[in-house]
């Protein structure tokens, strides 16, 4: 009888150091950080502003070059990777930004279609159907031909979610996707992300300050001063409550 080997993690980070500036101005933002993120799980990165969580997200998203240490994403080592490898890794991930970052000259549908175009799938016969399907899933079926200035903040963020998900990424990276939304809309968007991620077996790594959505995470990683302070499943009392106030992470 053989024992099944544990599944390879989606993200494996070992002894990661990252800094900005040079010489006397050099500032270390990630210090000997190691982390492993399971496939198909939703992990929240939390911590005070400037703690390095967004830098970590950009390194995992192959948006920066790894300076020291190892970052493996979806089986590919990003340390020493060339531009082509970085771009290929980006194409396997979906990104949701703090501000929706929709293209203002494109309609909602055209914006979402860009998520397929980057993978060379926009010319396929079912491309529009796939866009409409995901737009329907995020509740924007009636707004597909509108421009970003014709829809609400929540709808913009839903459109950004649709753009990130339409290409069926293996990894979803999100940076404070609820920051510009009210609590109700923010929660709706995150629940939507979580539901679609679960349906598609995606790994989600999300930076957030928002204590109201902690219950949605499978795991919460706290970072402080470039190091991991703690990592654990969300506590039972993390279930959101209307009266709950932001805690330490929002006190900047």
């Amino acid at each position: 009888m053989t024992t099944a080997s544990p599944p390879r993690p989606a993200i494996r980070i070992a002894h990661l150091n990252h800094w900005y500036g040079e010489g006397d101005l050099r500032r270390l933002v990630l210090r000997d950080l190691s982390l492993s993120v399971e496939r198909g799980k939703t992990t929240f990165l939390m911590g005070p502003s400037g703690c390095g969580k967004t830098t970590l997200l950009t390194l995992v998203g192959a948006l920066r070059s790894v300076m020291d240490g190892s970052v493996q994403v979806l089986g590919r080592e990003l340390s020493g990777a060339d531009e082509t490898a970085l771009v290929e890794t980006r194409r396997r991930a979906g990104f949701i930004f703090q501000h929706h970052n929709l293209h203002r000259s494109l309609t909602v549908l055209q914006n979402v279609r860009m998520g397929l175009e980057v993978k060379g799938e926009a010319g396929k016969r079912d491309a529009i159907d796939r866009c409409l399907e995901v737009l329907s899933a995020v509740g924007l079926a009636d707004h597909v031909h509108k421009y970003q200035d014709q829809i609400s903040g929540g709808q913009k963020q839903r459109a950004a979610v649709a753009r990130a998900l339409v290409g069926k990424p293996e990894l979803l990276l999100a940076d404070e996707p609820t920051a510009a939304l009210d609590s109700k809309t923010g929660r709706e968007v995150i629940e939507l992300v979580q539901r679609l991620a679960a349906e598609r077996g995606m790994t989600v790594l999300m930076v957030t300050h928002d204590n109201r959505i902690l219950d949605i995470a499978d795991r919460i990683v706290e970072i402080e001063d470039g190091r991991i302070l703690s990592e654990a499943p969300p506590k039972a009392d993390a279930i959101p409550h209307p009266e709950r106030l932001p805690t330490v992470w929002t006190r900047v």
């Binding site: 771009v87 290929e88 980006r90 194409r91 930004f97 293209h103 998520g115």
Partner: peptide, 15 residues
Amino acid sequence: DHLGEYATFKAMGFK
């Protein structure tokens, strides 16, 4: 005017 949008496209994987 579109630098932010171009940066977004780069993040998405456009060359």
